[in-house]
């Protein structure tokens, strides 16, 4: 199966949506019902924690099997959370790798623009895929509530200029998937479901301080005058030597 970035060069929301619905083998599973969403209740509560340029996108997921599936063979499931990050923010893939080593996630990957130092105008959208194990035979346990929080460290880029002094970055609700590996003979089978939450999540916003274009003239003039004055002043005693 080809990944999105093997098929497309850049990230476009609609193309990515098409990829998730058409290209991925979602909700097709011979062992599990394809209407899995009707058998479970799922809610996600996302918020941005912290202040300043380094924050955490915290997503608390509550997952409950309303009608358990007793006939399913031994299976192991994990949640896959896909966050689409606008160009104003980024995740540091190396920071995530360290979190992976500390077993905060079971797997993680970053796609798209992972250049850490570019300002917003020169950067592009990135996609983060976080995997979180939720355990063995989870679909067989009736009314079992699974509740976990994923904290994703985010960093803001220097935004484009804006006269209001702030630029707002909007983060959409993540795409959620459930991947279950089912033990069967002779081969294990993997099923993949796109999950739907019970409530529609509103976009999260993050205000990032931005420079004002109207400052440019004064700032440039004073900057160069200060450099010239300072160089003259610092050279004065040198000329006396």
């Amino acid at each position: 199966m080809e990944s999105y970035y093997e098929k497309h060069e850049s990230f476009i929301d609609s193309l990515f949506d098409d990829f998730l619905t058409r290209d991925l083998p979602v909700n097709i599973c011979e062992v599990l019902p394809s209407d899995l969403n009707t058998l479970l209740s799922l809610s996600i509560w996302s918020r941005i924690k912290g202040d300043g340029s380094h924050r955490q996108l915290s997503s608390t997921i509550k997952f409950k099997i309303e009608k358990s599936l007793f006939h399913v063979p031994t299976h192991h499931c994990k949640f896959i959370i896909i966050e689409r990050l606008p160009s104003g923010v980024f995740v540091d893939p190396f920071e995530l790798e360290h979190l992976l080593h500390r077993a905060v996630f079971s797997d993680v990957a970053v796609f798209g623009d992972t250049h850490l130092e570019l300002p917003s105008v020169l950067s592009n959208i990135s996609v983060v895929e976080v995997h979180k194990d939720i355990g063995l035979n989870i679909l067989s346990h009736n009314k079992n509530l699974i509740d976990f929080t994923v904290d994703l460290p985010l960093h803001s880029r220097y935004p484009r200029l804006d006269e209001s002094g702030y630029v707002e970055v909007r983060l959409k609700a993540p795409d959620l998937f459930l991947q279950c590996s089912i033990q069967e003979k002779p081969h294990n089978r993997t099923c993949f479901f796109r999950l739907e939450t019970d409530d529609e999540e509103a976009d999260l916003t993050w205000s990032i301080p931005a420079g004002k274009r109207s400052d440019a003239g004064v700032v440039s003039a004073i900057t160069f005058v200060s450099a010239l004055l300072s160089s003259t002043f610092s050279l004065e005693p040198a000329q006396e030597v």
């Binding site: 202040d51 300043g52 340029s53 380094h54 002094g165 702030y166 205000s207 990032i208 301080p209 931005a210 420079g211 400052d215 700032v219 004073i222 900057t223 200060s226 450099a227 300072s230």
Partner: peptide
């Protein structure tokens, strides 16, 4: 600016000029 998210870019730039003056 960095840890509280306040727009103090002008104040920070003036602080840079003062730091150059101090140097």
């Amino acid at each position: 600016l960095e840890f509280k998210g306040k727009n103090v870019l002008i104040q920070l730039w003036i602080a840079s000029i003062l730091f150059l003056a101090a140097n």
